[in-house]
Computed example of a mutant assay.
Amino acid sequence: MPPTPQKTPDAAAAARRARFGKLPERIRPDQMIQESQATAPDPARNVYAADEWLVRYCL
């Protein structure tokens, strides 16, 4: 095995600062959620017939 090069403390600190010196940009909570519909909306589902109750309950 070839010997691994030893970094000096200054070089190691500079490499660490270059990699971890700044925190990533903040992500807002509304950017963390992706919404999608589970099913396609059915336009006939919520159709209201004003006279339907007359037919169902009065006849």
Results as ranks from 00 to 15, higher is better:
Met1Leu: 12
Met1Pro: 14
Met1Gln: 07
Met1Glu: 09
Pro3His: 08
Pro3Phe: 10
Pro3Arg: 09
Pro3Cys: 08
Pro3Trp: 04
Thr4His: 14
Thr4Asn: 13
Thr4Glu: 12
Thr4Arg: 15
Thr4Gln: 15
Thr4Cys: 13
Pro5Trp: 12
Pro5Thr: 12
Pro5Tyr: 13
Pro5Met: 11
Pro5Asn: 11
Pro5His: 10
Pro5Arg: 15
Gln6His: 13
Gln6Glu: 13
Gln6Asp: 12
Lys7Asp: 14
Lys7Gln: 15
Lys7Thr: 10
Thr8Gln: 13
Thr8Ile: 10
Pro9Gly: 00
Pro9Ile: 02
Pro9Phe: 05
Pro9Trp: 02
Pro9Asn: 04
Pro9Gln: 02
Pro9Ala: 03
Asp10Cys: 11
Asp10Glu: 15
Asp10Ile: 13
Ala11Trp: 03
Ala11Phe: 04
Ala12Pro: 04
Ala12Lys: 05
Ala13Gln: 05
Ala13Tyr: 03
Ala14Asn: 00
Ala14Pro: 07
Ala15Ile: 03
Ala15Phe: 00
Ala15Cys: 02
Arg16Pro: 01
Arg16Ala: 09
Arg16Ser: 09
Arg16Glu: 06
Arg17Tyr: 04
Arg17Trp: 05
Arg17Cys: 02
Ala18Leu: 09
Arg19Pro: 08
Arg19Cys: 08
Phe20Ser: 02
Gly21His: 01
Gly21Glu: 04
Lys22Cys: 03
Leu23Met: 09
Leu23Thr: 07
Leu23Tyr: 05
Pro24Gly: 01
Pro24Lys: 03
Pro24Met: 01
Pro24Gln: 00
Pro24His: 01
Pro24Ser: 00
Glu25Phe: 05
Arg26Lys: 13
Arg26Met: 02
Arg26His: 09
Arg26Cys: 09
Ile27Asp: 00
Ile27Phe: 04
Arg28Phe: 11
Pro29His: 04
Gln31Ile: 08
Gln31Phe: 08
Met32Leu: 15
Ile33Lys: 13
Ile33Val: 15
Gln34Ala: 14
Glu35Thr: 13
Glu35Cys: 14
Glu35Arg: 15
Ser36Ala: 14
Ser36Gln: 12
Ser36Lys: 13
Ser36Pro: 06
Ser36Tyr: 14
Gln37Met: 11
Gln37Ala: 14
Gln37Glu: 10
Gln37Thr: 02
Gln37Ser: 10
Ala38Tyr: 01
Ala38Pro: 03
Ala38Leu: 08
Ala38Phe: 03
Ala40Arg: 06
Ala40Gly: 01
Ala40Gln: 07
Ala40Ile: 04
Pro41Thr: 01
Pro41Val: 00
Pro41Asn: 02
Pro41Ile: 01
Asp42Cys: 01
Asp42Val: 02
Pro43Ile: 03
Pro43Ser: 00
Pro43Val: 01
Ala44Cys: 05
Ala44Met: 01
Ala44Asn: 03
Arg45Trp: 05
Asn46Ile: 06
Val47Cys: 03
Val47Asp: 00
Val47Pro: 02
Tyr48Pro: 11
Ala49Ser: 07
Ala49Asn: 11
Ala49Lys: 11
Ala50Met: 03
Asp51Met: 07
Asp51Pro: 07
Asp51Gly: 07
Asp51Tyr: 04
Asp51Gln: 00
Asp51Phe: 04
Glu52Leu: 11
Glu52Ser: 05
Trp53Asn: 12
Trp53Asp: 15
Trp53Arg: 14
Trp53Gln: 15
Leu54Ala: 12
Leu54Asp: 12
Val55Gln: 12
Val55Met: 12
Arg56Ser: 10
Tyr57Cys: 11
Tyr57Glu: 09
Cys58Ile: 14
Leu59Val: 14
Leu59Met: 14
